[in-house]
Computed example of a mutant assay.
Amino acid sequence: MKTKRLALFVLSSLFVLTACGQSASNPSGEALEKITFVLDWTPNTNHTGLYVAKEKGYFEEQGLEVEIVQPSEDSASMLVASGKAQFGISAQDSLAANYASEKPLPITSVAAVLQHNTSGMMSRKGEGLNRPKGLEDTTYATWDSPVEQAMIENVMTKDGGDFTKVKLIPNNIVDEPLALKEKQADSIWVFYGWGGVAAEQAEVPIDYFYFKDLNPTFDYYTPVIIANDNFLADNEEVAKKFLQATKKGYEFAITSPEEAADALLKAAPELDKTLVYASQNWLADQYQADATQWGVIDPERWNGFYSWLGENQLVEKVIPENTGFTNDYLTE
């Protein structure tokens, strides 16, 4: 799920980037493997570990030259699947339709950026929308996604509510706190690490509930790092080196969030500095959370969410267990 539909761009050179395997040279003369990484949208604090790894030379230490780009009209999944990028960012819920299709794209999730699903429902404080039943007879800004609406219906039903009483309006919102303040909508689905923190910074009082707290099945992985299957098969050691450097970047963001935020702001100076620092401090506890290490994906949680989609006929066919992810390229 995305909280914003931003107009994204990428330099045309993305489509003529050479494939991994050609080399460049660092000042010491050592050959570097070229890697292209495509984001899911514009740079934000979900991506900080990547920018830290690039800024601090962690990729170069592993013999890699990594270019981080934004997607064009094609999604990150399409660019990774086509081989125009070796790695990218997506989300488990967004990938479900692919794995349920007759001819799925050759992409696999290789690391979890955040260990838990931090998305939830944000509303104006004190209006009774701090629980799912409270959404009745109010306006909700929807992306009109069947999975999105099925999840809301699920938590509302469990709370004694009736989803048919929610007034659905199109989600064309860019500034969520402002939209709530101006009553453009009564509730909006956001990720707390950006949307919720933005409301704090804007001093817009909010109520919030996490979907994972109401139904553990909804503690799926979002966002995740995906990789091209053919690249993984042919470049196992390179993939491991990439993830080792990326892991080091996120570990730095965990222990030194403000310095990590500086790396993101250096790469994307257009971002709101105050929001980035606040978001970075909040996310420092979310990247790894209670996992044994950054990036690891729990098969039970991954499979549980896809099973729920199949049971509720939200995908074309049942997705077999352990489809679409691996922990094999993460190193201790």
Rank of each mutant, 00 (worst) to 15 (best):
A7Y: 09
L11P: 11
S12W: 03
L14E: 05
L14T: 04
L14D: 03
F15C: 04
G21Q: 03
Q22T: 13
S23C: 10
A24T: 15
E30S: 10
T42Y: 11
L50M: 09
E55T: 12
K56D: 09
Y58A: 04
Y58N: 06
E61Q: 14
V66Q: 01
I68N: 01
V69L: 00
S72K: 03
S72Y: 02
S77H: 02
A81Y: 00
Q86C: 01
Q92K: 09
S94V: 12
A96L: 02
Y99N: 00
K103W: 01
L105N: 01
I107V: 06
V110I: 09
Q115M: 11
H116Q: 11
M121C: 10
S123W: 04
K125Y: 06
G128R: 02
L129T: 11
N130Y: 03
L135T: 06
T138V: 13
T139Y: 12
T139I: 12
D144L: 11
D144C: 08
E153K: 15
E153T: 13
N154E: 14
M156P: 13
D159T: 13
G161I: 10
G161D: 05
F163A: 15
T164C: 09
I173G: 09
V174R: 14
D175T: 13
L180E: 14
K181G: 11
Q184F: 12
S187E: 06
I188K: 07
F191M: 09
F191H: 11
F191Y: 13
V197W: 03
A199I: 04
Q201N: 09
E203Q: 15
D207C: 06
Y208K: 05
F209H: 02
F211Q: 08
N215Y: 05
P216K: 09
Y221A: 11
P223E: 11
E237K: 08
A239F: 03
K241M: 01
I254D: 11
T255Q: 15
P257I: 12
A260Y: 06
L275D: 14
A278T: 10
Q280Y: 10
N281I: 10
N281H: 12
T292E: 15
V296M: 13
V296W: 07
I297F: 09
P299S: 10
R301K: 15
R301Q: 12
G304Q: 14
L309S: 10
L309P: 06
N312L: 02
Q313C: 01
V315Q: 02
K317C: 00
I319Q: 00
P320E: 01
F325Y: 15
F325P: 05
D328H: 01
D328C: 00
L330W: 05
E332S: 14
